[in-house]
Each structure stands twice: as structure tokens, then as C-alpha cells.
């Protein structure tokens, strides 16, 4: 397969250029990367905050989507959003059934950045408590309902 080669090239590309508000936190190997994102406008929900995304790649990347979640680390919180559970799991069709192998780390970061930018609701998804207690970590095991187009 071509996962390794493709990831090496993506890494090379993003070392050269990344859009504003997106940065590499760590990419020491070709299986887990951490990316930092910031919301650039004055959205009061996310002003002056940096959030951290974790990308987990399988050997079948990019045929298979990466597992992308927000992670909580020292001084870094999980952003408040009606599609983001408080354990960091993101409900985004792009990362599930609508994944396409022409997507890449940069484009996923940009999609999530704009998902935050356009949000105005200071809330978690319905059933957040139950979901987090049920212990699901891997977004792949969840059948999200992508029916809410308002956010």
C-alpha cells in the first residue's frame, strides 16, 4: 500500500505551508499526528483558544479515513460545539461515510476549523453524558445521525 509514502509527502507539504490558524503540534511518526487549530475571527466561543486534534492513520490511509478526535492536554480544552462530544469525538460526515481519499490532513483541519467558525451554539450534542459514559472512543464504531444542517 501507499500510506507511508503519501503521509511523508503530506508532512513535507504541510511543513512548507499551512493556512492561517492551523499548525503541527507533533508528527514524530507516520501513525499519529497532532494538529493545532485556532478560530481566526472574533467568535466569542473560541476567542484566543488553541485546540488540538489527533489524527490516527491506518495502513489503509487514505483509502480509509483517519480517526480524528479533539484531545485534552495541559491547558488545552475540547471546544464547545453541538457536534463535538466532551470526550473529543467529532461528529462529521467527512470523517465517516463521506470520506474521500482526495481529502488530506490539511483539508480536514480546514473543514473542522470552519465548522467551529460558523458555530454560535454554546452546547454539546444531545445525549453527551450517556455517550461519554458508554466509553466510545473510536468514531468509526458510531453511527452518527447527520441530519442537523443548521450547524
Amino acid at each position: 500500500m501507499f500510506a507511508q509514502k503519501r503521509l511523508q509527502k503530506e508532512l513535507h507539504n504541510i511543513h512548507n505551508y499551512l493556512p492561517p490558524g492551523i499548525g503541527i503540534a507533533s508528527a514524530s511518526d507516520l501513525s499519529i499526528w497532532k494538529m493545532d487549530i485556532q478560530v481566526l475571527d472574533t467568535n466569542p466561543l473560541y476567542a484566543d483558544q488553541i485546540y488540538r486534534l489527533q489524527f490516527k492513520f491506518s495502513q489503509s490511509y487514505p483509502i480509509e479515513a483517519p480517526e480524528v478526535t479533539f484531545v485534552k492536554e495541559d491547558g488545552i480544552e475540547i471546544p464547545m460545539h453541538p457536534h463535538i462530544y466532551s470526550n473529543g469525538v467529532i461528529c462529521l460526515d467527512l470523517l465517516g461515510k463521506n470520506w474521500s481519499p482526495v481529502q488530506n490532513v490539511e483539508s480536514v483541519c480546514m473543514s473542522i476549523q470552519s465548522m467551529l467558525t460558523s458555530n454560535t451554539k454554546n452546547e454539546r450534542p444531545p445525549g453527551d453524558d450517556n455517550f461519554v459514559r458508554s466509553g466510545y472512543r473510536s468514531p468509526r464504531n458510531i453511527n452518527f445521525v447527520y441530519d442537523d444542517d443548521t450547524v
Partner: peptide, 8 residues
């Protein structure tokens, strides 16, 4: 000449 999935 580069494939946009495999980048090769």
C-alpha cells in the same frame, strides 16, 4: 503526472 490519492 501525480495521482491525487497515492501522491505518486
Amino acid at each position: 503526472l501525480i495521482d491525487s490519492i497515492s501522491f505518486s
